[in-house]
Amino acid sequence: LTVQLGNLEWHFDNPEQALKMAEELAKRYQLKVEIDNGTLKFK
């Protein structure tokens, strides 16, 4: 699973870790998370 923020990307083997990080980033920057083809992206 990949977490993508702008041109930064983090790759996780563990989806739970990816979701946890995505939630933290979304909270911190007040963004919405969307999943696009196995990639978590922020809007």
Rank of each mutant, 00 (worst) to 15 (best):
E16N: 09
D36Q: 13
W10L: 09
M21E: 03
N14L: 08
T2A: 06
K32W: 08
Q30E: 09
G38K: 06
D36K: 09
F42N: 01
E9Y: 13
Y29E: 02
K20E: 11
L19E: 05
M21H: 10
E16M: 12
Q17L: 13
Q17P: 05
A26Q: 04
L1D: 02
N14E: 09
L31M: 10
N14D: 15
E23M: 13
V3L: 09
L31W: 07
E16F: 12
K20R: 13
W10C: 07
V3M: 06
N37H: 10
L25T: 01
K27G: 07
E24D: 12
A18H: 00
N37S: 07
V33A: 05
K20D: 06
H11E: 04
G6S: 04
E16G: 08
K43G: 07
N7A: 12
G38Q: 08
A26W: 08
T39N: 06
G6E: 05
K41V: 13
A18Y: 03
G6W: 09
Q30R: 06
E34P: 01
P15Q: 09
W10I: 09
F12I: 03
R28L: 10
N7M: 11
Q30M: 09
L25A: 02
L5K: 01
L40S: 00
M21V: 10
Q30G: 15
H11D: 04
A22K: 01
K27V: 09
F42P: 01
L31S: 02
L5N: 02
A26N: 03
P15G: 06
M21R: 03
A22S: 04
A22Y: 03
A22M: 06
Y29D: 01
L1Y: 14
K20Y: 07
P15W: 15
E16Q: 12
D13I: 10
M21F: 15
L19P: 00
F12W: 04
E9D: 04
D36W: 10
K43V: 15
E24P: 00
F12L: 03
E34R: 03
A22H: 01
D36I: 14
Y29W: 08
R28Y: 08
I35H: 09
L8N: 11
L40W: 05
E16V: 13
D36V: 15
L25E: 00
E24H: 12
M21P: 00
L5H: 05
Q4S: 08
F42M: 11
K41P: 01
E34H: 11
K27M: 11
E24Q: 13
N37V: 04
T39Q: 07
I35V: 12
F42I: 14
L31K: 01
Q4C: 04
N37R: 07
W10H: 02
E9F: 14
L19C: 05
N7K: 14
L19T: 05
K41Y: 11
D36S: 14
L40P: 02
V33P: 03
V33W: 15
K41I: 14
K20I: 10
T2P: 03
G38N: 11
Y29R: 00
N7Q: 13
F12P: 01
F12N: 00
D36N: 12
K27T: 11
V3R: 00
G6H: 07
L19M: 14
L8I: 12
G38C: 05
K20S: 10
K27E: 12
V3C: 06
N7S: 13
K27A: 13
K27W: 09
E24K: 14
G6C: 11
N7G: 13
N14R: 09
V3W: 03
W10D: 00
E16H: 11
P15R: 12
V33F: 15
V33D: 01
F12G: 01
A22Q: 01
E34A: 05
T2E: 03
M21C: 12
D13Q: 10
Q30Y: 09
M21A: 07
E23L: 13
F42W: 04
V33M: 10
L8D: 07
Q17M: 13
N37P: 01
Y29H: 07
K43L: 13
R28I: 09
I35E: 08
L40F: 07
L31V: 06
D13G: 07
Q17E: 15
L1T: 10
E9Q: 14
D36T: 12
T39P: 00
L5T: 03
L1A: 07
A18Q: 01
G6V: 04
R28K: 15
A22E: 00
L1H: 08
T2F: 07
M21K: 09
A26D: 02
K43S: 14
H11G: 02
L31P: 00
N7W: 11
K41D: 02
E9A: 13
A22W: 04
N14Y: 07
E9V: 15
H11Q: 06
K41F: 09
Q4H: 08
L8P: 00
V33Q: 02
I35G: 02
A18E: 00
L31I: 08
E34L: 12
N37L: 04
M21N: 01
G6T: 03
T2I: 13
D13V: 10
T39E: 06
L19G: 02
V33C: 05
K41W: 09
Q17S: 11
Q4D: 03
A22F: 05
P15H: 12
Q4R: 10
T39H: 07
W10S: 01
R28P: 01
N14S: 12
R28Q: 09
Q30T: 06
Q17T: 12
A26M: 07
F42Q: 01
E23D: 10
I35L: 14
T39Y: 14
L25Q: 00
I35Y: 14
K43P: 05
K41R: 11
L25M: 06
L40C: 04
L8R: 15
L1P: 04
A18L: 05
K27N: 11
T2M: 08
V3E: 03
V3S: 02
L1R: 02
V3H: 02
D36G: 08
L1V: 11
L1C: 10
L1E: 02
L1W: 15
V3T: 02
F42C: 04
A18R: 00
K32I: 15
K20N: 09
G38R: 05
R28F: 07
T2L: 10
T2H: 07
L31E: 01
E16R: 09
